[in-house]
Simulated scan of single mutants.
Amino acid sequence: MARFSPLEWPVFRQFSSPDRFGRGDSVVSRKTREIVPRTSSADRVVQSVCPYCAVGCGQKVFVKDERVVQIEGDPDSPISRGRLCPKGSASEQLVNSASRQTEILYRAPYAAEWQKLSLSTAIDMIAERFLEARKKWWQDHDEHGRPVRRTMGIAALGGATLDNEENYLIKKLFTAAGAIQIENQARI
């Protein structure tokens, strides 16, 4: 370890340089000068939208070696104008977390263990259950004989992390399937 010299004190550098008020280079340490931002080493920058709420703040995602290294607010976004809330600022941790689930897990009724499923198997299971519930609880007419053409076996709860277009499509899908219990987290 190098010996400390009083000549490296900021106050000495301040009075021995033109920076008399200590507002410039005289108060910057060598360690601070050597620091470089994570964004400077990025291979590319990708524009994205924050996944946390329905506001839709713009993000700049800095990628190096196909890995996200930093996420910042996008100053070109008309919604957030470069600002992010604390959750949006920490969304890099959402992407790079060691505990992030990347496989589809399924626990059968009364089973004690989870099993891994392929995406096609999981989608097929969901579709089969959706159609079965629709068919089982379908009502053509109510108790007064009026046509209702609905199912009481399917309900939908949309999330606020989806944007308006996604929620619109989900609403149309469930309405077309005959569901009438359709709600959204943003309204509750």
Rank of each mutant, 00 (worst) to 15 (best):
L157M: 14
Y106R: 12
I154Q: 01
V63E: 12
A90Y: 00
P109L: 02
T39K: 09
A156Y: 14
L131G: 02
E143H: 11
A127E: 13
D140Y: 09
R150V: 07
D124H: 09
P51Y: 02
G56A: 01
I35N: 08
L157E: 06
R30K: 14
D65A: 11
A54G: 12
E128I: 11
S40Q: 13
A133F: 06
K135S: 15
E103P: 03
P51K: 03
C50F: 05
I79M: 11
R44S: 09
E66V: 01
L94I: 05
A160D: 04
Q59C: 15
W138H: 07
L84K: 02
P109H: 05
R38Q: 12
N96W: 00
G73V: 05
Q101N: 08
K116V: 15
I79K: 13
Y106C: 12
A155Q: 12
V46R: 10
I123L: 15
I71K: 11
N96Q: 06
S97R: 12
L131Q: 10
E143G: 13
G82I: 00
K60H: 06
P86Q: 08
I71F: 06
V69F: 02
T102S: 11
R81M: 14
P78G: 02
W138K: 07
T151Y: 02
V36W: 05
V28K: 14
D76Q: 07
A98E: 02
A155W: 07
R30L: 13
S89E: 11
A98Q: 05
R33L: 15
I79D: 09
D76N: 07
